[in-house]
Every structure is written in structure tokens, then in C-alpha cells.
Computed example of a mutant assay.
Amino acid sequence: MFNGAFRIYARNVDPADPGNAFRHRYFTADRYRWDRKRAAVLAGRMAGPESTLRRPPPEFDAIKERLNRARAGIDNYEKMFNELGTEFDEVKAEVRELRRERSDLQEWEQEAERLEAQLDYAKKLLIVNGICDDFRLDEEGRFREKPPRSSREVATMVRKYLHDRVELHSEALRGDKVMDRNSASASWAQTAWQGFKALYAYGEYMAENPGQNVDFFTWCSGPHNRSGWTRDKTARGESGATMDKRGKTRIFPVSVKLSRNEEMEMVQHLKIQRKGEGDIPRVYFVYSPRTKKVHVGFYGPHELVPNTKSRKR
């Protein structure tokens, strides 16, 4: 239609049939333009009688049921969506809380590491100054001295507390089971620990006095030795006969910083016990002005470094 007119088509319309034109009423714009409700009234008068006589098609009920189910499904989806949204917000809040806790935990771990480093340094000061060896909490929560009771404990303490002046090679400890099965093993461990602390004090002295040419044996007799270690428990070297026959057993592993071949001959040693069987401990070492450290290449039983007087077991 044109100029605002509208037409209501009756049922069974056939636009190609010229005779159908008179069956379908139309209304010009002049009939309703001055009253907005007029068009609805006119359309209702025409369509009302027809609509009351017609029944919905057979498919109507099925389609209506499907639409109702779809509407119910949409409601369920909306409910589910809202629940998921709430759960998502809760998860986001938990993630934020976990991130905050992780950040706090990292700060606590860093603080714990810092305090542990300070505690280790304090222990080291007490150890190298001869005040106390190691510590542990007793049943009443107080610190008490805990001396080493095995050669492996000694090695652990040397690497932990004395490493800046005494370098115990990773392969230096040998035959620890042989030494530790002896009834005197605990006493040997404590004596060895005292010897290592004396080597630390010697290394400190040599590092602070680079112009000095003093071996450990001589240092033990001097005024700078406050460790309590005496030179009668120290050997300056080996006899010529021992070196001729057993010289290869005095070559020990060292750091590549000390030797490109990563091995070096050592003859100075600590006598943890001066006389005894093949299981008595020995500690072979050398001082290096280059590294300013005492390098220990061997800590083990005498039977692994025999001399000409050693008896075969």
C-alpha cells in the first residue's frame, strides 16, 4: 500500500488472482491518522471474526511445548551461569589470597635464610676462637656443646665452618668406616676436629701475613698458636726411605685452582694418634699462598698411607 494505507488480507490469499482484490479490505491513512488507536480498532474488527473461527494447526501444541522447554532451559542456564559467575569470583579471591600467601612465604624463606647465615657465622666465630665447637638444643631448649663423634661428622663440620681457610677436598675423606669402627673413634674425631681448627688458625695467620715463610710445624711452636695443638702431633715431612718406597701414596687430589693436574704431593700431616694400628687417622695437607688456604688432600687411616715401619694387616 501507499501513503500510509494498510490492508488486511483474508485467508487463502492469492495475489495473482485479480478477483481477490475485493476480498481484502484496506484502509487509507485519513481514517486513522488523527487517532492512534483507530488503526488497532479497525484491524480488530476485521480479524476478530476470522480468528475465533480458526483452530491452531496440529503442529502448534508441539512447537509450544518445545518453546516452553527452551524457555525453562534458558532459565536454568541463566541460573547456572550466575552460579558459575559466583564460583569464579570466589576462585579469583582464593587465587589472590594464595598469591599473597606465596609472597609472604617467599619473604619468610628469605628471612630464614638470612638468619641461618647469621647463625652459622656466629657459630663459626665461636668455633675458630676456641669458645665452643657445635651446638644443639637440649631437652630444656638450651644450647649445649655437641662435639663430632665420627670422621664423617668432622668432615661435614670442616666444610661448613672452616671452608674459607681450610679446603677439604671432596675425595679427601677415605676409609672412614675403618676409623669409625674402632672403640676410640669418638676420641679420634674430637682430636681431628681440634687439628682442623688449628689448621684454620694457621691459614688465617698466613693469609694475614703473606710475607711469612713459616710451615705449620714451626707455627705450632710460635706465639701465634693459641689453638692448643702441639707440634709433637705434627709431622713436617716423611723420611727418604718412605718417599722412595711409598712416595706415590703421598700424591693426593686438590682443586684445579691449586694444580692443573688436580693432584699434588703432600708430606706434612697431623698425627691424630701417634702410635697404633693401621686404622689410626692421618691428615695430609699443604698451604697455598695463591689461594690463601690450607688444602687437605687426605683424611683417613694410616694403612692407606703406610711408611717403612708399617705392618701389613
Results as ranks from 00 to 15, higher is better:
L258S: 10
A21R: 11
D35V: 08
Y287F: 15
R7I: 06
I251P: 06
L119H: 01
G48Q: 04
L105E: 01
F196I: 09
K37I: 01
R102P: 06
A5I: 08
T28Y: 03
G73H: 12
K177A: 09
A70E: 07
R149T: 09
D75M: 11
A184W: 05
K124F: 00
D75R: 14
E111K: 07
I280G: 12
T86F: 04
R69L: 12
E94L: 14
R152F: 04
R260T: 00
R181G: 02
R313K: 11
Y205C: 12
F285A: 15
G203F: 05
S239H: 05
S170A: 05
A201I: 01
Q110S: 11
G222E: 07
L84I: 09
G228D: 02
I127R: 14
D89G: 14
D215E: 02
Y26V: 04
R55A: 12
V294S: 09
T249C: 04
K197W: 01
Q118S: 00
Y26M: 15
Q273K: 14
E204C: 14
G247K: 03
N129C: 03
F135E: 08
R246D: 01
K64E: 08
A189Y: 10
G211V: 11
V305P: 03
V256K: 15
I74P: 00
K124D: 00
Q212H: 11
F216E: 12
R66G: 01
E167R: 10
P210R: 14
G240S: 03
R71C: 00
T230Q: 13
R55M: 12
N3Q: 12
L270Q: 04
Y205D: 15
G73C: 07
D180V: 03
H224Y: 04
R152C: 09
E262L: 08
H269I: 12
D232E: 06
E140I: 02
E113T: 03
G19S: 05
V305Q: 07
R96E: 02
L162F: 15
K257N: 13
A192M: 08
R231D: 04
D279P: 12
N225Y: 05
M46E: 15
T52N: 04
A10N: 10
F196L: 08
N225T: 06
P253I: 02
N307T: 13
V267K: 15
L105H: 00
L105P: 00
F60W: 15
F135L: 14
R55H: 09
E78D: 13
E139T: 13
D176L: 03
K37E: 06
F298R: 08
A172E: 06
M80K: 15
T249F: 10
G237D: 03
G44L: 03
Y284W: 14
P289N: 13
E94D: 12
A192S: 12
S185H: 04
P223E: 13
V13S: 11
E78R: 15
Y205G: 13
Y205I: 07
A47I: 11
A235M: 10
V305M: 08
V166A: 00
A241Y: 00
L67E: 13
M179D: 05
T234K: 02
D35E: 07
E109P: 01
G195S: 10
E167T: 09
F27N: 03
G73Y: 09
H269N: 07
D14E: 12
G195R: 10
